[in-house]
């Protein structure tokens, strides 16, 4: 554990909580891509199946459970509780365009050709592109609410902080995980355009 890893995790947690609270408090999921949220729920589910097979630390287990719980709570709010406010017409990105190629890649490029490891690899690849339906939705409607941009900022910041974590771990522990590093770079790059808008325009974005 180092400072980049910890702040990365907290940034990730902040993003998840911000989105959940925003939907809950406003009783609306307008402007939020339900498809991105389904993909994130799928990411956490496939990555954290190791909860059943290996124990890393109390911190690790607690965070995993919170991430999974929040992901499903968010999907529930969007598709069940506040379904009437869900903007399905603008959430038109096709999930299979991400899930199918990513599944194929996970089978081809992985650390170990085993069931759990392929699911872990799938989750890493899928996470790197899971935000695309949300970004697509914003580009389609041409705007994003302030709180939505805070959500995206913390979600993007988290993986960027992990990149520093991996540099740290490479120098001080000799540790590196090429699959996570490359996917993490792709993921961070996807947010660059958004970061630029967030910093220059600040808060609410209208294209």
């Amino acid at each position: 554990m180092n400072i980049f890893r910890l702040t990365g995790d907290l940034s990730h947690l902040a993003a998840i909580i911000i989105l959940l609270l925003k939907i809950w408090k406003t009783r609306s999921c307008a402007g939020i891509s339900g498809k991105s949220q389904i993909l994130f729920a799928l990411v956490f589910t496939t990555r954290y199946l190791d909860l059943l097979t290996s124990f890393i630390s109390l911190y690790n287990t607690t965070m995993k459970v919170i991430y999974i719980g929040c992901a499903y709570a968010t999907v529930y709010l969007i598709y069940m509780k506040f379904k009437a406010t869900y903007d399905g017409n603008h959430d038109s990105f096709r999930m299979e365009f991400l899930v199918v190629p990513v599944g194929g890649l996970a089978c081809l490029v992985n650390h170990d050709f085993s069931f759990l490891e392929i699911l872990w690899t799938f989750s890493i690849y899928l996470e790197s592109v899971a935000i695309l339906p949300q970004l697509f939705m914003i580009s389609k409607t041409g705007e994003a609410e302030t709180i939505t941009t805070h959500y995206l900022f913390f979600l993007g910041l988290y993986r960027a902080l992990y990149l520093f974590n991996w540099i740290w771990r490479f120098y001080f522990e000799g540790f590196f995980d090429m699959i996570a590093i490359v996917a993490g770079m792709v993921q961070t790059i996807l947010y660059c355009d958004f970061f630029y808008l967030y910093v220059t325009k600040g808060q609410g974005i209208s294209l």
């Binding site: 690790n60 170990d112 540790f175 590196f176 995980d177 996570a180």
Partner: peptide, 10 residues
């Protein structure tokens, strides 16, 4: 060492 399974990150 490089990567060792299981994965210890989130």
């Amino acid at each position: 060492h490089a990567l060792q399974l299981p994965h210890d990150e989130l």
